[in-house]
């Protein structure tokens, strides 16, 4: 059922976003002039795919929340679009509990920040070891698993609003 719902509204105009994003990404990688190793190439390829899976999982969780909170379609925006905005800046920009929650609790730091540190060969100013960056794409399967659980639980227990 899920693939059917997802594929029922494919908009061709959104392709431009993928093209633009990919172009910026490749441009940045070229401009950064990195010492390429097989591991770097692998991470550069895997990280965007993992990020896509991660955000797809988030959107699914967000949509599933409306199983329980019917008029709450705005709430998922805070971690879908909010999370997207969060990942566009280095996490060092943020502070306090907010950074803890979004970067590590929800895992947004592992979408772009830690892979970028690993690609650039920089140490984390926040003190996490270097291997974190190389393993960060693993948040994607974790998120996808969690989203699958929420979704399945939601459709099993779904009762219509009755109106």
């Amino acid at each position: 059922m899920l693939p059917q719902l997802v594929l029922s509204d494919l908009q061709l105009r959104k392709v431009s976003r993928i093209v633009l994003g990919a172009a910026v990404y490749v441009g940045a990688l070229v401009a950064a002039d990195l010492p390429w190793t097989p591991a770097r190439v692998a991470l550069a390829v895997v990280a965007p795919v993992a990020g896509t899976v991660f955000f797809t999982a988030l959107f699914l969780v967000g949509a599933s929340l409306t199983f329980w909170w019917i008029e709450a379609a705005e709430l998922p925006n805070s971690f879908t679009y909010g999370g997207r905005d969060f990942t566009t800046y280095p996490v060092t920009v943020y502070g306090g509990w907010f950074r803890g929650l979004f970067a590590y609790g929800l895992g947004f730091a592992f979408v772009a920040y830690y892979p970028a540190l690993a690609l650039l060969g920089r140490a984390d100013p926040l003190g996490l070891p270097a291997w974190v960056g190389w393993l960060s794409p693993l948040v994607a399967p974790v998120a996808a698993g969690a989203a699958a659980v929420v979704w399945r639980f939601g459709i099993r227990h779904y009762r219509s609003t009755g109106s």
Partner: peptide
């Protein structure tokens, strides 16, 4: 009438408020 929507919406505004404030303060 829709209190859930109010809470959900305010929570979203608060998240974006935090995001924008940190970026602008940086």
């Amino acid at each position: 009438t829709y209190r859930q929507a109010t809470i959900a919406g305010a929570a979203t505004n608060i998240t974006f408020g935090l995001l924008r404030t940190y970026v602008l303060l940086a």
